[in-house]
Design a protein around this nucleic acid. Structure first.
Lengths: 208, 208
DNA sequence: GTCTATAGGCTGATAGAC
DNA sequence: GTCTATCAGCCTATAGAC
């Protein structure tokens, strides 16, 4: 498995470098600014050389999405709170922090191009998308069993939670003026509402 | 005010027709497919003629956004329920129905291009964006006074409500597979959670 | 007002020399 | 592997004839 062949290695390094500069270009200029020519110029090769490592511009975009979803998953996975409600509260914060940290990748994954989004979600295993949602579903399962609730499936609550966070993140990205409130506060609020933990959270807010 | 001059009239008619075909092209091919050449071909004029009615492609896109926001506002405004919680429930449905009825315009307004979104929200008066949010803010004001609640400002609840609906609508548009649940049901659920009217709504669900 | 023609760009992707 | 050169196409916007 370990490829020590220097030639293969150099190729992998260049491939990685292409992805790195692509992410920088994406961040600075958006998807429309991500052109093969610009990528080539940034890694100091000719445009044709890029095609030795990636089949198309589309494939570069897809790999950026996968990398982004992995990062998002890592942020969620690093949450350690045991109490399910606290865990969901931390997920909310982590989710918005990710979107804020790399808004253009977030936009690429969810907003830029429906074809791309569909392709990315089609082979979910390649990214952390499904894994991330699973974390949230598990938290709601834990929450409901701890509260002995019966109404509503955890997957529904998880999707609702996710949609709310996505709404906050994407409105902020699309137009910072759209929301006058702080999205972290709004996320905390919606988490309380969906988990039904308003009373507890006031004490928690004091502790902070 | 009434311009009966036939020349002016013909000009207005053509302008309107340009917007109509633009919306059709947008729906079929997305923003990238909306080019001056295609618009010109669809109205059977030369590309140059379009510039007599619109300064640029960007301006056409903006006017489509304004028209879309007006339509969204009309749908919300036609809601008549007096009880604030029921009104919000109906707003949720109307909002999702609008997004579903014209997904590419919805995408254009909120997802396609941050510059465009910012421009549209910058002169809000031109569209129904601010007016629509005001309806929701009013409903939350009514709700809170009827419930004699003190915690949280109505504008926060309104923005949260909006963001949740936008999250549902935009995830559905970006990737129909992303949400496994029915978004109307999820919207009903989040409305109940945010308004805190879960008990009532069960009775309501029966009545339907 | 409407046309033709065109300036002046940009793009993704490939063929073929080295 | 990497290059140069290029194909084949797209685009917005404008100048100037009619």
């Amino acid at each position: 498995m370990a490829t020590i062949d220097p030639r293969t290695r150099r190729k992998q390094v260049l491939r990685q470098k292409i992805l790195e500069v692509s992410r920088e270009i994406l961040l600075a200029q958006g998807l429309a600014g991500l052109t093969m020519r610009r990528v080539a110029e940034a890694v100091d090769y000719s445009p044709a050389a890029i095609y030795l490592h990636f089949q198309s511009r589309e494939q570069i975009a897809q790999e950026l999405c996968f990398a982004g979803l992995r990062q998002l998953y890592e942020r969620l996975e690093s949450v350690t709170a045991e109490d399910p409600a606290s865990r969901l509260s931390a997920y909310a914060r982590a989710y918005l922090e990710y979107a804020q940290s790399d808004p253009e990748t977030y936009r690429l994954i969810f907003m830029a191009d429906p074809q791309l989004t569909k392709a990315v979600f089609a082979h979910r295993d390649a990214g952390g998308g499904q894994a991330a949602l699973n974390l949230i579903v598990t938290a709601f399962t834990d929450l409901h069993s701890s509260l002995k609730r019966t109404g509503g499936k955890p997957i529904e609550f998880a999707e609702l939670f996710w949609a709310s966070l996505h709404g906050l993140a994407s409105l902020r990205i699309a137009c910072s003026r759209a929301l006058t409130g702080d999205e972290f506060r709004l996320a905390q609020l919606v988490t309380e509402k969906i988990t039904g933990t308003e009373e507890k959270s006031h004490a928690k807010a004091q502790r902070r």
